[in-house]
Structures are given as C-alpha cells and as structure tokens.
C-alpha cells in the first residue's frame, strides 16, 4: 500500500510511545540508564536494509518475536554480541565470560529480555490503537545480522519490494547498544492506521 507522510508521522508516534515503554522496561530490568533515539519510520526497498542495520555479516544477538492478533507483525530486537554479553552479565550479576553461541542460560536470559521489551512495546501499541496484540514465544539467533534478517523477512516465502518498519536505537551506560524494529504485516498497517482514525 502507499504510505503518506502523514501516516508515516503517525507510525513514528506509535514507535515513540512503544519504544519508550520498551526502554523503560530494559532500564528497570538492568538497573541502568537507557537512552532512546527518536524512532525512524522507514519505507524502503529491502535492498537498502543494510543501510539501516549496518554491515550484513556483523555478529549480533537477535531476538525475534512474532506479534499475533488483528494487527500482526514482527518485532525484532538486536544487539552487537559485546552488548548482549554486557546485558547478560548485568542480569546474572557476574563478569565471568559466557559463550552466547552455546550457553543455554545466557540464551534464555536474552530471550526473556526480548520478551519483556516486545511485550512493553505491544502494551503501548494496544493502548493506542485498541487492537489487542500478543507476543509469541521469543526465538533467539546469534549470527550474522544479514542472514538472520533475511530469514525473518522471507519466513512466509514472499517479500514486498518495499518494507516498512519502525526503527529505534537504544543505548545504555556503559556500552550497551541495541536496535528495535517492528515490521507490521501488510494488512496490519491499514488496521492500525484505521484504528487511529487515519
């Protein structure tokens, strides 16, 4: 569907509220200050996704949650591996090295972080739109960001030439960087905008 500038602004506002909730949840969980960028709303050809996520073969920890309900979509939270390690250390209150690729405890903790972030994002979205939305069980992959994102985009075996998503950068002190993106499914965008009278 064609998206107007006005609708993009509305989506940015949704992103602002949702991501604010998510950042607050992360801050409470880690007992650290978390800053959030002003969300960007992108409607770009998927070939340009690398401009948004950076180098496609950079290893990142990616938590993927499907959003189910009348306005379904995909929520993805990703951190560089070093940041993910800091998050896990903060949660366990330890500085012992952990291998995120194999350590099940660390992986489970990261999934839970993703779960909390996405759930708080969805609470805001539901309050705003009146459309009830539920997160699926989170899935985690630690690997090349490009490889993971292509799998998420292509999961249904189709891909529109333009992907639309809300993108927020989170950063914590010290040295936590993360990025949260929400991709509404095509029909969902219409429903979300409709619920807001747009």
């Amino acid at each position: 569907m064609e998206v107007t500038q006005f609708q993009l602004d509305a989506l940015r506002e949704i992103g602002n509220i949702g991501s604010g909730n998510a950042a607050t949840a992360l801050s409470t969980l880690l007992q650290r200050r978390i800053d959030m960028s002003v969300p960007k709303v992108w409607a770009v050809p998927f070939e340009q996704v690398s401009d948004i996520v950076g180098q496609l073969d950079m290893p990142q920890a990616v938590i993927y949650v499907k959003v189910e309900g009348e306005a379904s979509g995909k929520a993805v939270f990703f951190f560089p591996v070093e940041s993910a390690e800091i998050v896990v250390h903060a949660l366990f209150g330890t500085s012992e090295p952990m291998d995120l690729y194999t350590d099940e405890m660390a992986q489970s903790a990261l999934k839970e972080v993703g779960n909390i972030l996405v759930s708080s994002f969805l609470v805001a979205l539901t309050q705003f739109s009146g459309i009830p939305l539920q997160p699926s069980v989170p899935a985690l992959a630690v690997d090349m960001i490009g490889a993971i994102l292509d799998a998420i985009f292509l999961e249904e075996g189709t891909l529109d030439d333009t992907v639309l998503f809300i993108d927020t950068q989170l950063s914590g002190i010290p040295k936590i960087e993360g990025q949260f993106i929400f991709l509404p499914d095509e029909g969902s965008l219409k429903k979300l905008l409709g619920a807001m009278g747009l």
């Binding site: 998927f46 070939e47 690398s50 180098q55 292509d150 799998a151 292509l154």
Partner: peptide, 23 residues
Amino acid sequence: VGMADYKTARSPDLLLTAGLGSC
C-alpha cells in the same frame, strides 16, 4: 553483490556477498 542483486567479474577480481541466511 547485495541482497537480490547479481554481478559479473573478470580475473583477477573477486565477487563477495555477505550474510546469506535462507538466501
């Protein structure tokens, strides 16, 4: 070579594509 892209090359050049998942 980007996502959904193709390129050709002649020796001695190399072709690269980064981050193949299900692609």
